[in-house]
């Protein structure tokens, strides 16, 4: 830099710098420090948030990358082992099971989108008392996964469960079914819980979207000869595109990172024969039940790579929907 002379006039929280700059390619510098007042103010506003994010998100992310190359049990200092954790991961059948289960869990996303749009269309009708129904559908969302999940687990109980009771009462079943002890049902029971809780929340998102669609689009569709459901197929679904993208992003990330539903429906055990173990559940078990923090960190890195991939896909989708909208 060829700064010949500088003069700094300090204010309370601003200071002006006037400089004689001999080099013309310092334009950016000049713009920042000469024509405008340089001010600490924006940084002061940002400082608390950035500090928290640096300590609780950025540092841990870097640390977890390091831990994944170490043998670490949280108590003793980490010991560098290179790629050993990753090599072990590739040969670990439970890890592959967890990976498969996490991806299988993504089935909840299209299901939730479809069902909650249908529900939003139903509750969008101006019927008397509709607000009461909307509020009722929101009850599971508000109550929290753990409280709701405890109730959910009892529903599928062998002896006293509501599901067995109803199915036998109606005559579909002769004998009660061991829902919770059957590996094939572990994941579906947790997924149904996710759907049951998510339905009310995403319904509200889609309802807000529906109310933004101009009424005359529907009128035009009717003139073009659409009946009731065709109208929704040709107007509501395309009109809800921003909400669909939002819900797809949020619910698919939540599905890949699912933990609470698995924990509460399997009583913290992950289901018979690890039938309900997902990536985050396996991460949690390895790190905090088995004290294999280094190994768990390698699982965390796999999770990070997956969510990164997801985000790239999501950004593409967002860009595409923006292009089509414009």
């Amino acid at each position: 830099m060829h700064v010949a002379a500088c003069e700094i006039i300090a204010g309370s929280n601003t200071f002006e710098v006037s400089c004689v700059v001999t080099n013309a390619d310092l334009e950016g510098f000049t713009r920042m420090f000469m024509t405008k007042k340089f001010s600490f103010t924006p940084y002061l506003f940002l400082a608390p948030a950035l500090l928290i994010i640096a300590v609780f998100i950025l540092y841990p992310t870097v640390a977890v990358v390091y831990y994944s190359f170490t043998d670490y049990n949280i108590v003793q200092p980490p010991v560098w082992v290179g790629l050993q954790n990753y090599q072990q991961l590739v040969q670990d059948p439970i890890f592959w099971k967890a990976l498969t289960n996490s991806f299988l869990y993504l089935i909840v996303t299209p299901t939730l989108i479809f069902l909650s749009i249908l529900l939003a269309i139903v509750v969008n009708r101006p019927l008397p008392g509709i607000n009461v129904f909307r509020a009722l559908y929101y009850v599971p969302v508000i109550s929290g996964t753990i409280a709701v999940g405890i109730a959910w687990r009892w529903l599928f109980d062998y002896n006293g469960g509501l599901i067995n009771g109803i199915l036998i009462g109606v005559g579909i079943l002769q004998q009660p079914v061991q829902w919770l002890a059957e590996p094939a049902f572990t994941l579906p029971i947790a997924m149904l819980l996710t759907i049951w809780i998510g339905l009310g929340y995403y319904m509200m998102v889609f309802l807000a979207g529906l109310q933004n669609i101009p009424e005359d689009l529907y009128d035009a569709a009717v003139i073009d000869g659409c009946n009731g459901w065709q109208k929704h197929w040709y107007v509501s679904f395309p009109g809800l595109r921003p909400q669909i993208t939002f819900v797809a992003v949020i619910s698919s990330l939540a599905a890949i990172e699912v933990f609470n539903e698995i924990f509460v429906t399997t009583g913290g055990l992950g289901g018979i024969l690890n039938s309900g173990v997902t990536l985050v559940f396996y991460l949690w078990r390895q790190a905090f039940r088995l004290q294999h923090a280094g190994y768990a960190s390698a699982i965390a890195i796999v999770l990070l790579v997956i969510t990164l991939g997801f985000s790239i896909i999501n950004i593409r989708l967002l860009e595409r929907s923006e292009q089509e909208a414009s």
């Binding site: 998100i57 841990p60 992310t61 640390a63 949280i74 790190a287 923090a293 768990a296 965390a300 969510t307």
Partner: peptide
């Protein structure tokens, strides 16, 4: 940082 899963940070945060 938005895409970093919260669960990923728990091991270092625990430490």
């Amino acid at each position: 940082t938005f895409i970093i899963p919260a669960q990923l940070t728990y091991i270092p945060s625990f430490v």
